[in-house]
């Protein structure tokens, strides 16, 4: 495992982090993703927005195999996602994810939440894993909470722990699915600040979010989805100033008001 990671494979030299080509997905009869084409370069920051139910979550969940696509190609960091479990493992090793509902493990302390995967997946010793965890907990500014349980933290703190937990696996790509939607307004900023820092350090990020301020500040491109399709992709300035499609205009008028 370590060997495979330290030897640069041809894929690691490519500049493409995620490639989705002609991706379709159905939930039973329901066509949830329709011909998705999206190429994300390394160090690129993508913000995905769109009305509820348009397939944003499904799209990013396909990237780490939480959902399986039925048609098209998804290549993550040089590995194509297939039915083969090994391709999933490879993708998940490189991709971290942060959920709307945090999904911290309630039976483990903050520190244990962060060390679980490094110990069991990467084979780190407990001490190494704890050192790494403390490093990232400091970066999300909650090292002093490391011995608490998730239920003892505020929503904003929990979400920052969730970010630290994902970072402990040293992912190359980070997925965020509406990371601030479940937060009280006064906690949104502390989470966005952490994400902005991460973006500035050059992390490849795909963020489903309606925080337009965040999109303006960090996004390289904004993706607008509606009804399972990518309707429009543009740089943030163009996207907000001159939306090309009617649906985009309507959506922006609703959320910017």
């Amino acid at each position: 495992m370590n060997v495979a990671m330290s030897t640069p494979t041809p894929a690691e030299h490519t500049l493409v982090a995620v490639e989705m080509a002609g991706v379709h997905k159905w939930f039973g009869q329901f066509h949830v993703l329709k011909d998705i084409n999206l190429t994300v370069m390394r160090k690129e920051r993508i913000v995905i927005c769109g009305p509820s139910g348009s397939g944003k979550s499904t799209l990013i969940r396909c990237i780490n195999g939480l959902e399986q696509h039925q048609r098209g190609r998804i290549v993550v960091n040089g590995t194509e996602l297939t039915r083969d479990v090994r391709s999933l493992d490879a993708a998940r090793r490189d991709v971290g994810m942060v959920f709307q509902q945090f999904n911290l493990f309630p039976h483990l302390t903050v520190l244990e939440n962060c060390t679980l995967a490094p110990i069991w997946v990467r084979g780190l010793s407990k001490a190494e894993a704890e050192m790494r965890a403390m490093h990232y907990l400091e970066r999300v500014r909650i090292p002093e909470q490391s011995y608490k349980y998730p239920s003892q933290l505020s929503g904003g703190q929990q979400q920052r722990v969730a970010i630290a937990r994902a970072l402990c696996m040293n992912p190359k790509i980070m997925l965020f699915d509406e990371p601030t939607s479940a937060l009280d307004p006064e906690m949104i900023k502390e989470v966005l600040d952490v994400m902005i820092e991460l973006a500035q350090e050059g992390m490849t990020m795909l963020v489903v979010s309606h925080e337009m301020g965040f999109a303006r500040e960090v996004a390289d491109r904004v993706v607008f989805m509606d009804d399972g399709q990518i309707v429009e992709i543009n740089g943030p300035d163009e996207f907000f100033a001159r939306p090309r499609h009617e649906r985009t205009k309507l959506f922006l008028s609703q959320i910017l008001r």
């Binding site: 998940r92 994810m97 696996m169």
Partner: peptide, 22 residues
């Protein structure tokens, strides 16, 4: 909750470890 397994999978934990530890 389903989110618990999803979080574990997204961290790269195997099915077995997810069942045992989460």
């Amino acid at each position: 909750p389903r989110g618990q397994t999803e979080a574990a999978f997204s961290l790269g934990l195997s099915r077995r470890t997810t069942l045992r530890r989460v």
